[in-house]
């Protein structure tokens, strides 16, 4: 088995489009998915590195597993639905606490999905999507849903997260760079999101390697030294 070098976790409420985002990125198309059970594991080859991606279930039913998926994660994607304020509020209420088990230098991204429903720019088929001859019709532009969460809200949340994690704003990525608005349906910003994140986690891998520490989420290692083992760098 190819050992994953680094772990990325996608979190978010039910039906915000976590699976669709990943599906758009890996398979270049949008299709109806059913509600994920538990979590789904994917291995992405990124240059010489293996990046494992956990697509988790948003259902509260599987909440108990969340911290397990997050253990030692190098990046967490917090996903909400731009047309649903509740899904945004849930990020702070329910999901943020799960990331306690993530790596201490974990990178956070806040992603507002379904932007095609509210923004003209997102609904125009992305050149890339067009190239792939995406069979799905682009959303009808006449009836735009009301946008309930704007990007400023996401930026504010990002800053609160840094505070929660007791990280210095200056040492981290700029909030504006870590808040995305995407559309899994049209493909808008999806590649940008994943590729930005992949690029950001690579230095982490290199640092770990240099220190001779396996960043891989090694089960035995985690167990031996407790959940926070991967944070000692």
């Amino acid at each position: 088995m190819k050992k994953p070098d680094v772990k990325l976790v996608i979190l978010g409420d039910v039906n915000v489009g976590k699976t669709s985002l990943l599906h758009r990125y890996t398979e270049r198309r949008f299709k109806d998915t059913v509600s994920t059970v538990g979590g789904a594991f994917f291995l992405k080859q990124w240059g010489p590195y293996n990046i494992s991606i956990w697509d988790t279930a948003g259902r509260e039913q599987f909440h108990g597993l969340g911290s397990m998926y997050c253990r030692g994660a190098a990046a967490v994607v917090l996903t909400y639905d731009v047309t649903n304020w509740q899904s945004f509020a849930e990020l702070e209420d329910r999901f943020l606490a799960l990331t306690d088990t993530a790596s201490a230098d974990c990178i956070f991204a806040i992603v507002g999905n379904k932007a095609d429903l509210t923004d003209e720019c997102a609904s125009v088929p992305h050149p890339e999507a067009e190239r792939d001859a995406c069979p799905c019709p682009s959303p009808v532009s006449t009836t735009k849903s009301h946008k309930q969460v704007v990007k400023e809200d996401a930026v504010a949340l990002y800053k609160r997260i840094l505070k929660y994690k007791m990280l210095e704003e200056k040492q981290c990525q700029a909030a504006e760079a870590m808040c995305f608005e995407t559309s899994a349906k049209s493909g808008y910003n999806v590649d940008l999101l994943f590729e930005t994140l992949f690029d950001m986690v690579v230095p982490g891998i290199l640092r770990k390697r240099a220190e001779g520490l396996s960043q891989t989420v090694d089960l035995m290692e985690c167990k031996g030294t407790g959940p926070k083992s991967s944070c000692c760098y």
């Binding site: 398979e27 998915t33 059970v37 279930a57």
Partner: peptide
Amino acid sequence: LIRASSAFQAGEIWTP
């Protein structure tokens, strides 16, 4: 369960 969650088939599922 397998039938119902088969729509996204590429990954490896881990679920209680």
